[in-house]
Nucleic acid binder design. Structure first.
Lengths: 316, 316
DNA sequence: TTCGCTCATGGGCAATTACTCACCAAGCAG
DNA sequence: CTGCTTGGTGAGTAATTGCCCATGAGCGAA
């Protein structure tokens, strides 16, 4: 009992010190003087008050919920970087994420030391790149993970690196390949070319990578952009495919599928999630399964998404 | 428009930085690195978040000494609600009380059943209202007891209800009157108006009322804000006046004075202390006499004050 | 266009705070 | 009684933060 009241008295003092420090805004020296103890003791009381959660800090701003979700996502999935933007169901699929991703890209590009920045493909990523201001960063290199040739032979619209080159003055390295080739052998052949080889090597050394996460389905980007026929898509989905990054198709656990389509993907492999940042951009109900798979399967170690999606990921 | 979103974006950043600093416990260096800005800028954002009151600190611990004082005050004066915060002689007149009052106001506003909340005036009350977070409570009604027109015709600065309307989304009813009118007859006339009438009726039904307690004297709020001339004040004090609530002037026993000034007060009467809560906010040596009078005369039945004042009230 | 004007920025420095270490007092088992 | 553990203290020091100032970008007026 004596012990109990001892502790209680100490907590009392801690509360008082914490009050003086946080509410009244006094320094620890002043608190020490007022309470007749040494400054160090005052410091201990203040930190005790914090440790015992006597001090409640609240942030009164819409962003607070987003940051909270982001931190939970980071913990739950072991991600290195998470950004959650407010949901706005009314607006288009890329609003919010694009701006946030552009800001993140800009942060990387503003670094003094030279970096290799890799980009994948996708409408969201395209929208993000369109948000970029003009930056000069001659020290950095920007490399595309995916080919820039569409099935019909034209340059694929959602190949992001060209849009990026418009705004960002850095050396940029597109991938002079189709997205899908006709066979694994053809892929080997093309990847063996000197020019392609060096671009692939560079992409493997990327310091940071930004990729879109695509859902499967006949409305998904692979079909809409004509990379896959409807029946191929149906076949894939029967095989358990739920999403893709740069054309690499994975199942509900985020494992790359061992099937004929993935053998024909000419994109560079997704850079190491151990040694570099690989940030996925996606939000929206249609992509929920794909995003969850990418996250649990560690195809990515960073995520920029919205509140609604974040909540889904936390509940699932 | 551009300007507006600029400021909004800056506040967003401030909120982010503040969250990272206070909630996540990162150092300013880490925040700077994460946000791609210099440490100084991070520091500025954090202090901006504080300055903009995005950060609310609250102490969640009953300090035994304060509790003890509160319970003694409750017994001695038959008060229904007493809250005592630690004293801090060095800080300004509103520190501590404001936070505690904001918390109490918030508790009332969070109730599910619809309430009528009345507010008076005063610097302390203003400071309390400024601490309120954004709340949506469409079921509640907030009504001002005092007029919102200063002697010079402008809206009185310390009319609290407008500040409250900024944070709290509820129907609010200001009192479209001066604080003091020229005669009892004019008061009758004004109070007879339909609009004023209904506001007065509503204030009489208030479930809870928060008021400041003002001291008299040439430094008191009535003089400082220009409602009374020096000589009027001197005259009042010679007549035994020691304090005021919403302009209603009372003597040392807390009885409303029967004098020409009180006949000109256009404020609503203080709501019933039998049927509702009327919580006074005040602390400090200069207000001792006024607070004691308000308490013994039962102008209020609730009090939020500090230790020093509480001890005075118990000794006196 | 050019001149002020405002305001955000980053560097530097002083104040403030957090951490580590050695020590002490109380409680307790052997 | 002794040795051990626990928990608190002050001193010293490293880390962090707050503030001032010079700088430069952005912008409106002349």
């Amino acid at each position: 009992m004596a012990k109990r009241s001892e502790t209680a008295a100490r907590l009392d003092d801690a509360a008082r010190a914490g009050w003086l420090y946080y509410v009244a805004g006094r320094t620890q020296d002043e608190i020490a003087a007022a309470m007749g103890i040494s400054r160090q003791s005052a410091q201990r009381l203040v930190s005790l008050a914090v440790a015992e959660r006597l001090i409640k800090v609240r942030l009164d701003h819409p962003i607070a919920a987003c940051l909270e979700l982001a931190s939970q996502l980071r913990r739950k999935f072991g991600l290195k970087h998470v950004e959650v933007v407010p949901s706005d169901s009314g607006s288009s699929a890329t609003v919010g994420i694009a701006e946030a991703a552009a800001a993140e890209i800009e942060r990387w590009l503003k670094r003094a030391e030279p970096i290799v920045l890799a980009v994948g493909t996708g409408r969201t990523l395209k929208a993000a790149v369109d948000q970029l201001p003009a930056i000069e960063c001659p020290n950095h290199r920007i490399v595309s993970l995916t080919g820039n040739i569409a099935p019909d032979g034209s340059a694929a619209y959602y190949n992001v690196i060209f849009s990026m080159a418009d705004a960002v003055k850095a050396r940029h390295y597109p991938m002079p390949l189709p997205v899908l080739v006709t066979s694994a052998e053809e892929r080997e052949l093309l990847h063996g070319q000197q020019l392609v080889r060096s671009t692939l090597d560079m992409s493997a050394q990327a310091d940071v990578t930004f990729v879109g996460i695509g859902e499967l389905g006949i409305d998904g980007p692979l079909c809409v952009d004509g990379f896959l026929e409807k029946d191929e898509m149906m076949e894939l989905m029967r095989g358990g495919a739920v999403g893709e990054i740069c054309g690499w198709i994975f199942d509900v656990d985020g494992r790359l599928l061992d099937n004929p389509i993935n053998e024909r993907v000419a994109s560079a492999p997704i850079p190491s999630r151990e040694a570099s940042m690989v940030i996925g951009l996606a939000k929206g109900k249609r992509k929920f399964k794909a995003i969850r798979a990418a996250v649990v399967g560690q195809q990515i170690n960073g995520l920029i998404t919205d509140e609604e999606t974040a909540e889904f990921l936390l509940k699932s």
